[in-house]
Amino acid sequence: METSIPAGRPKPLADADTAPFWAAAQERRLSVQLCENCDRAIFPPKPACPHCVRELAWRDLNGRGSVYSFCISRMNFIGGYKAPYIVAWVASDEHPECIFNCNIVDCAIEDVRIGMPVEVVFETRPEGVTVPQFRPIREGAPA
């Protein structure tokens, strides 16, 4: 599957706040910031907890979630993407306040639904970067 990812998709440019997220993705982990003071998970990464302005730690999520919303992109605006494709907001099961922008992969565009259970899958692109995407969890499929 990974060999089918087209070249030319924009490459994330990490900064000090976001580098742990991308480094984790490279190791096939989905990691977000956690505020140890107010027990909230924070994504996308922020310089400090937006609720109590404390420093943030990092923790890995189990990678499961559900489709909070989706759209079918039917125009070619961005390099390496060929319409139609699914763009979604996926909410983490463990921390629904964490919403990931992603594509739903291994899924026909007519099959995606709000509430659909999904799991993270790591997509390694020809440029060498690995990004977290999500795919449907199929009944009876091996975990």
Partner: peptide
């Protein structure tokens, strides 16, 4: 977008189309 590098808030959007 002609951007190949997506920094700041764009790093969580453009790389996902």
């Amino acid at each position: 977008s002609g951007a190949n590098l997506a920094g700041g808030p764009d790093q969580f959007t453009l790389p996902f189309g």
